[in-house]
């Protein structure tokens, strides 16, 4: 039934938001990403799938230079955001990360109030001139994170007191509060129950109207449900990249087929 839906999905060519060309990542002596080239579309959901340790999270973290924080990581190749090389010496990673937001595997709200969690990004980037504007941004972001109705009466309570699914949606709200252009999600549902997962997936579907979303997931069903494009990573190689429907129904590479049918991974 699901498969049917995937086949019927129309494929529309969209602008390329992020273009990665021949990206290699090394962790010390380990060659973690091998010569990966991929074009990530704007206003679409791209899923990275693959077995554990295949490099999909590593690659995701290259897209907003989060790997910079790891001393031994070394990156070669070129990643362009709207035609600008993000690894250019003149690029400040802080500015880049405001444009390329990130949601992590484990919900990680700051141990502060719900309001302050969302307001933190706009505050440090100076996105609001006064309290009223900030209030507006917070409300808008929480609405986009599909959590406004649940927390609007307790904005001053700690974000860490929410349930796991709520925390993750709060983190998504926090990420969209800085008005990013790309939203990176590193297995955002792996710590959540099915109901919370469904809520997040619905949210991701919504978010693609506005942002380019890249999601790393272990769940092939999830990739099939939410993404338009899918990239399959295996042992640091990008094995196959294409329309989600195509990858799941008619993979070209035998390794992709083995993985999606559950024979490797």
């Amino acid at each position: 039934m699901d498969d049917q839906r995937i086949i019927e999905r129309t494929t529309v060519m969209k602008d390329i938001k992020i273009a990665a060309t021949n990206v290699n990542v090394f962790y010390g002596d380990t060659h973690a990403i091998k010569d990966v080239s991929v074009g990530i579309e704007d206003k679409a959901v791209t899923a990275f799938i693959g077995p554990s340790g295949c490099g999909k999270s590593t690659f995701l973290r290259c897209l907003n230079r989060m790997n910079d924080t790891i001393d031994i990581a070394r990156i070669e190749g070129k990643i362009e955001l709207d035609g600008e090389d993000i690894y250019d010496k003149r690029v400040d990673p802080v500015q880049l990360r405001a444009k390329v937001g990130m949601v992590f595997q484990k919900p990680n709200p700051f141990p502060k109030s719900i309001y302050d969690n969302v307001a933190y990004g706009p505050r440090i980037h100076g996105l609001s001139r006064n309290k009223a504007e900030l209030d507006e941004i917070v409300e808008k972001s929480l609405r986009r994170g599909a959590i406004w109705n649940e927390v609007k009466d307790r904005l001053d309570q700690p974000g860490t007191g929410l349930s796991g699914g709520q925390q993750q949606r709060l983190c998504i709200a926090r990420a969209v509060a800085t008005e990013p252009e790309v939203l990176l999600m590193d297995e955002p549902c792996s710590a959540l129950d099915p109901i919370a997962t469904a809520q997040i997936e619905e949210l991701i579907d919504d978010l693609k109207q506005r942002y380019s979303v890249v999601i790393v997931t272990h769940s092939m069903q999830q990739a099939a449900r939410v993404s338009q494009k899918t990239a399959f990573f295996h042992l640091g190689d990008l094995v196959e990249y294409g329309e989600t429907g195509h990858i799941f129904t008619n993979p070209e590479d035998s390794r992709t087929e083995s993985y999606i049918t559950g024979r490797i991974g």
């Binding site: 500015q95 405001a98 937001g101 949601v103 990680n108 440090i124 990420a175």
Partner: peptide, 23 residues
């Protein structure tokens, strides 16, 4: 202090110093 807090701060575009001093 869990590294996830640092990542969260860096993820919303805080500088390293802001991440350290704010969180």
């Amino acid at each position: 202090v869990p590294p996830s807090i640092r990542e969260a701060a860096l993820g919303v575009g805080a500088s390293k110093m802001q991440a350290v001093f704010h969180h």
